[in-house]
């Protein structure tokens, strides 16, 4: 609780810098009962540290604050702010240190399968998974895939592998908000979820001609 209180100020500060207020005109999509003071009080009183998940995780960065009112964030009036947030996120992208885009697609498949990491039941120090299959169809053999994100079947086969395409895919994985301010996809590189080598493996899963993602036979029946 004490911990929660120390972050109260930080949350309040971020809320005040939030999009709805900054624009001054558009009312937030929730009613007046959830004004900043009441909401901040509720957050501070309702959560506690557990394992590696501390209450400081409730403190939003600018992107999170902006996207927490999806109606306002998607409005034409917020177009400029969206672009600014995308640019700021793009600026966080660290490109592969050795200039090589692709790792091992087999390792990539394992990372895509794993949803481990960063919950209060996860131990610190163990490598995180990519959570990819939770939302995407990827290899045709895996029928247990989610549909929040688009299918990635034939990803490389459809797009080729020129520098521009590689760069876009890398940026999407490293920081998904660089291309779409309020994408549902986590910012795997920027938030330290995946290491550079892991991102390379995922890139190989998408682009390597030997990866099942690009297999010619199409989806398994």
């Amino acid at each position: 609780m004490k911990n929660a209180m120390t972050h109260l100020a930080a949350i309040a500060a971020l809320l005040l810098a939030g999009p709805a207020l900054a624009q001054g005109k558009a009312a937030p999509s929730w009613g007046p009962g959830a004004d900043d003071a009441a909401f901040t009080r509720m957050l501070a009183a309702s959560f506690k540290d557990k394992g590696i998940a501390k209450v400081d995780r409730l403190t939003q960065d600018e992107t999170q604050a902006f996207c927490s009112d999806p109606e306002a964030a998607a409005s034409p009036a917020a177009a400029e702010k969206r672009q600014r947030i995308e640019a700021a996120n793009m600026a966080t992208v660290k490109w592969p240190s050795d200039g090589k885009w692709l790792g091992d697609w087999k390792e990539g498949e394992k990372i895509a399968q794993s949803g481990r990491g960063n919950t209060w039941t996860d131990k610190p120090g163990e490598p995180n998974g990519g959570n990819c299959y939770n939302c995407h169809q990827i290899s045709p053999a895996e029928i247990s895939y989610g549909t929040i994100g688009p299918s990635l079947l034939q990803y490389g086969a459809l797009r080729g592998g020129d520098e521009e395409t590689m760069k876009a895919a890398w940026a999407k994985i490293y920081n998904a908000k660089s291309l779409n301010a309020c994408s549902n996809m986590p910012r795997a590189g920027h938030m330290g979820i995946l290491a550079e080598a892991q991102i390379k493996h995922l890139m190989a899963l998408l682009f390597d001609p030997a990866s099942p993602v690009n297999a010619k036979t199409g989806p398994a029946k």
């Binding site: 929730w30 999170q64 330290g192």
Partner: peptide
């Protein structure tokens, strides 16, 4: 709608 944490 409140986004937060390492996964947004």
């Amino acid at each position: 709608y409140y986004q937060s944490g390492p996964y947004d």
